[in-house]
């Protein structure tokens, strides 16, 4: 519990310093979790399913296909260490998808799925690489694009 608190504090400290440390398009926004979902689009943005479709396959950026398979090209380059995303839009609502991408570890602290929309508190034992320090993996817009796309997988 104490460690969690420290982590939270560190995250908050990191979050406040972020505005200056990163490119202007990448900004962290507050969001509200209800149940297992974030009902409202991040920063009120609307997603573009076509952009999401391309992003989900970018193995160096979104990384999704490193772990997940799904109805995308090149199945032999898709991972098998996470659930297949086929039909995920029928299984989960937009809000549920959003929370899972923003921070799966809120639902399962042991999950290996990266946290896409928080800043990882860095330390000598965490060693976040300089390029990635003090920034989330994806932007609010990118996450909304993914949610819009995953909704179409039914």
């Amino acid at each position: 519990m104490k460690r969690r608190l420290i982590w939270l504090l560190l995250t908050l400290c990191a979050a406040t310093s972020i505005a200056s440390a990163i490119t202007p398009v990448t900004r962290l926004h507050a969001y509200k979790v209800e149940g297992d979902a974030i009902a409202h689009p991040l920063a009120g943005l609307s997603g573009d399913a076509a952009r999401g479709a391309s992003l989900v396959q970018q193995r160096h950026k979104s990384l999704c296909v490193l772990c997940h398979a799904g109805p995308f090209p090149d199945p032999h380059l898709q991972g098998t260490i996470a659930p297949d995303l086929t039909g995920v839009g029928a299984r989960l609502s937009a809000g549920q998808l959003r929370l899972r991408i923003v921070n799966m570890k809120r639902l399962n602290p042991d999950s290996i799925m990266p946290v896409y929309f928080e800043i990882i508190a860095d330390s000598q034992e965490v060693r976040v690489a300089e390029t990635w320090r003090d920034r989330p993996i994806l932007t609010a817009q990118e996450i909304e694009d993914l949610v819009a796309y995953l909704q179409t997988l039914r």
Binding site: L63, I112, P114, V115, I120, E125, V126, R127, V128, A129, W132, R133, I137
Partner: peptide
Amino acid sequence: ERRLGQLQL
């Protein structure tokens, strides 16, 4: 055994 880096693996 430690989770490392931005991906925390």
